[in-house]
Nucleic acid binder design. Structure first.
Lengths: 246, 246
DNA sequence: TGCGTTTCTCAGGGAATTCACAGGTTGCCG
DNA sequence: CGGCAACCTGTGAATTCCCTGAGAAACGCA
């Protein structure tokens, strides 16, 4: 089932109408807090743990619909935690957090069962999107909730990463895609450059704020070129996307 | 839930009908007093603190629906305060106050959970508007309270920053938008130039008082041009806006 | 390793916005 | 009706904000 959250976006709900529950496991407090904050904002119920012990315990009585699990925990190996989690919750999907240079094939094996992973440093849009996908596919939330965002004649499929405008296929890079997704998940709402930076870029991004301008420019070239523009600048406030009709 | 306050404007209320509670944290007394006064005028219940210690303590028993938090406090780092606040009140939205030149610096991640920020020096209208947005979206206030102001055939949407008169779209600059918002939040009420200056311009504005006249003139050109005027001058007293019919 | 792609910095240009100034207009009062 | 104060608005300059080209660096894949 999907419904409209207080902030105006559609959110996932479980079949019984209660909010989705997510367990976040990471030993860095700043990471769990960042994630908790962002995921709560999605309307989900969040519990966090700082080590494997706590994770298993919390999982036992919280019974989350999904788990975000750092593979590097102080007390036990990520695989060990995973094993114990699976004993408690055989079907729960897991989103792994790994260091960039982690052994890729080890992860690959893990995600074979429908799980997924993102590398640190991640962007919040990415984590949220992956989690939504996992939850949707696990059946914890209503399956009819589909994976396509639509604004006017612009569509974006979160599963296939396909983007079309008026039927034409449009190729976007990863960053362009995430930016567009964020805009389309908040149609007709002005988003400041800071908000965009916080959601779409990694949490450790330390660069110039004008990357946002730059990527907006790229998006316009691909999406608005020669058509009625959908991406609008609100000088001094930010950007927003809306159907072209106007 | 929204209702009509003693001074004639609609205000946010919590679902149980009690006033919204806001905690203001800043070490400059002049700032907390300025904010407290302005926010009380909104019909909200205000408590203030001058350092991180006090903020956390006050938060504990005051249980605010929103927090205004200066990032530069004498005793602890703004982020540290945030962390402790979050432990007390996991879901409370925070409006950060930051220095202008710190914008690029460490805003990183702050708006990620739906929080927001304004830079010093700010205008009171801006702070109030952002707070209203945060509270509205956090669900602490009734969800039906929407983001659109309406006076006669004039509408102003605070989310999309869209303004229409009789259905026609009207483009406003940032300052024009804030001025109009202030007028529309106080329909049929005479607002003096001093009041307008105090609310719409930053507290450190040192310019000529006739900017108000100038911007009223701009607004008239865009909103009243060729129509029944809605913005009226009360010579010697100020300006007011009201539906055109009356 | 090498090559195409993607991300990002930097900087110039351009346009929108803000504001001061000043002369014109309106309304009010004696 | 004259004079004054309050208000309106055209002009233009300074500033801020935004856009985008060019190229360097990092990445990804064969």
């Amino acid at each position: 089932m999907t419904t409209t959250s207080p902030h105006g976006r559609t959110e996932l709900l479980r079949p019984d109408g209660s909010p989705v529950r997510v367990l976040v496991v990471d030993d860095e407090l700043s990471i769990t807090e960042l994630l908790s904050m962002a995921l709560r904002y999605e309307g989900w119920q969040i519990r966090s743990a700082g080590d494997g012990q706590g994770a298993v315990q919390t999982a036992r009585d919280f019974r989350p619909d999904a788990v975000v699990l750092d593979m590097m925990l102080p007390d036990m190996d990520g695989l060990a935690v995973l094993g114990r989690l699976r004993r408690e919750l055989p079907d729960v999907p897991v989103l792994f957090l790994t260091a960039k240079d982690a052994v890729e094939d080890r992860i690959a094996g893990l995600t074979a069962g429908g799980d997924d992973y993102v590398t640190k440093p991640f962007s919040l849009e990415e984590v949220v999107a992956r989690l939504r996908g996992l939850i949707r596919r696990s059946g914890a939330a209503d399956r009819r909730s589909d994976s396509t965002l639509v604004v006017g004649d612009l569509t974006l499929d979160e599963d296939s990463h396909e983007v079309t405008r008026a039927g034409d296929n449009i190729h976007l890079t990863a960053t362009e895609f995430e930016l567009l997704r964020f805009l389309m998940r908040n149609p007709r709402r002005v988003l400041s450059k800071a908000q965009i930076l916080d959601r779409v870029w990694s949490y450790d991004f330390g660069g110039q704020a004008n990357v946002v301008e730059l990527y907006i420019s790229y998006l316009r070239r691909k999406i608005d070129a020669g058509r009625e523009p959908m991406i609008h600048t609100r000088r001094g406030a930010g950007y927003l996307i809306k159907p072209a009709v106007s």
